[in-house]
C-alpha cells in the first residue's frame, strides 16, 4: 500500500469551526476514527487537500437522554455505543449492529458518524492502485464504466454500514450542520441509491448527531452475514423493529444493508399488521424484502446468495422478536 499523500491537518474545537474550515478549503475531508478513510487514502481511492480531525470536538462525543429520546453524537465511538446501558437495554438492534462492526480495535476508534457515512464498497474499488491499474480501474475512481454491470451508466458499489439499518428500523433522525445552520431529517433521507454519490449531504455539511426515540413498545434486533467472524463488512445485514400488542403484530419495520448502494427500508409491510405473525405473514415479508433487494456482484460472494440470505435474516429476526415479545 502506498504512503499517504500530502495534506494539511486541521483540528477544530467546535462543530461550527469544522464547518467553517471545510468551507474555507473545499477539497478537505472530515476525519474521525479514520478506520475506513486511512486505508482508502493509502490506496489512492480518496484525494484530500486537508484532513479536518473531528476528534477534538467535544460536543460530537456525547450520548444524552432527553425525555423519551436518545441523542447520540456522531463522534461517539462504536465501542461506546455497544457498551452503553440505555442502548443495550432499549435499542438492542443498535448495540448489536455497533458490536458487529469490524474488530474491537476498530470499534474503539470508529465513530457513529463514520459508520453512517461509510464509503460504498465494491470488489473492483477497494483494491490497491496496482490491482485497479491492472483491471483498468472503474467509474467510481480513475476509470470509466462499471466492472460489475458492463453496460451500466451508474455505479453499483454497495453501502455496507451496519448501524444505519438498525437506526432506520427504529425511525431515527439525523442532525446536519452546514454553513446555513442545523437541519433535521429522517436518517433514510441521508442516502441515495448511487454508489458514487450515496449521501445527500451538501459539500461541507457535517452529520452532528442522531436522535432516536426510546419507545419500549418496540423490540429490535440486527444480524449480519459475513465471510469472517470479525473485521468484515456485511454480505448482507438486516435490522428488524417490531411491536406486538395483545397477540397482534401492530408495527413492523425492516431495513437492510449491503444489498444496494444505500441502506434500504422494506416497503409494503403494513399488509401483515393487525393479526398474529403466521406463515403467510412471513411469506409476505420475504416477498417484500425480495422486491427491495438490489444485490449486485460487488463482493466475491454471489449476489443471489446475498439476496437469499437477507430474506432468511428478515424472516428469522422477525420470528425471533415476535416469539420473545409475548
Amino acid at each position: 500500500m502506498n504512503a499517504l499523500p500530502e495534506f494539511h491537518y486541521l483540528r477544530p474545537a467546535t462543530a461550527a469551526d469544522a464547518v467553517r474550515m471545510h468551507a474555507a478549503s473545499p477539497a478537505s475531508h472530515y476525519i474521525a476514527g479514520g478506520t475506513d478513510l486511512m486505508p482508502n487514502l493509502r490506496r489512492g481511492l480518496v484525494t484530500i487537500g486537508a484532513a479536518i480531525d473531528l476528534g477534538g470536538v467535544k460536543e460530537l462525543g456525547e450520548i444524552v437522554e432527553q425525555g423519551n429520546t436518545l441523542r447520540i453524537g456522531s463522534g461517539v465511538s462504536l465501542a461506546q455505543i455497544a457498551a452503553h446501558p440505555v442502548v443495550q437495554a432499549r435499542l438492542p438492534a443498535v448495540a448489536q449492529a455497533a458490536l458487529g462492526v469490524a474488530g474491537p480495535t476498530h470499534r474503539a476508534a470508529a465513530t457513529l458518524g463514520g459508520n453512517l457515512c461509510l464509503d460504498t464498497r465494491c470488489n473492483y474499488y477497494n483494491q490497491s492502485e496496482a490491482w485497479r491499474a491492472g483491471n483498468n480501474y472503474c467509474m467510481k475512481r480513475d476509470g470509466e464504466g462499471c466492472r460489475v454491470a458492463k453496460k451500466s451508466k451508474r455505479c453499483y458499489a454497495a453501502f455496507s454500514g451496519d448501524v444505519a439499518p438498525a437506526l432506520i428500523a427504529l425511525g431515527a433522525e439525523v442532525e446536519i450542520l452546514g454553513t446555513e445552520g442545523v437541519r433535521r431529517q429522517p436518517l433514510l433521507e441521508l442516502y441515495r441509491d448511487d454508489g458514487m454519490k450515496w449521501l445527500t449531504l451538501a459539500p461541507g455539511e457535517l452529520l452532528v448527531a442522531v436522535q432516536v426515540s426510546l419507545d419500549d413498545a418496540w423490540v429490535s434486533a440486527y444480524e449480519k452475514v459475513r465471510m469472517r467472524g470479525a473485521i468484515d463488512f456485511p454480505l448482507a445485514g438486516v435490522a428488524v423493529a417490531l411491536r406486538r400488542e395483545k397477540g397482534v403484530l401492530t408495527g413492523l419495520r425492516i431495513a437492510c444493508t449491503g444489498v444496494a448502494s444505500q441502506p434500504i427500508a422494506i416497503d409494503g409491510l403494513d399488509a401483515v399488521l393487525g393479526r398474529p405473525l403466521d406463515a403467510a405473514a412471513l411469506a409476505t415479508i420475504s416477498e417484500q424484502a425480495d422486491l427491495a433487494n438490489r444485490s449486485m456482484k460487488t463482493t466475491l460472494v454471489d449476489a443471489l446468495y446475498r439476496r437469499g440470505v437477507s430474506l432468511v435474516l428478515a424472516k428469522r429476526l422477525t420470528q425471533r422478536l415476535w416469539d420473545a415479545a409475548v
Binding site: 476525519i31 478506520t35 486511512m38 486505508p39 480531525d53 474491537p104 474503539a108 476508534a109
Partner: peptide, 15 residues
C-alpha cells in the same frame, strides 16, 4: 489505555 491501530491513525490525532 485503549487499543488502536497505528497504521490507520494520524500521528497528530493523538496529540
Amino acid at each position: 489505555g485503549q487499543p488502536r491501530l497505528a497504521c490507520s491513525t494520524l500521528a497528530h490525532s493523538v496529540a
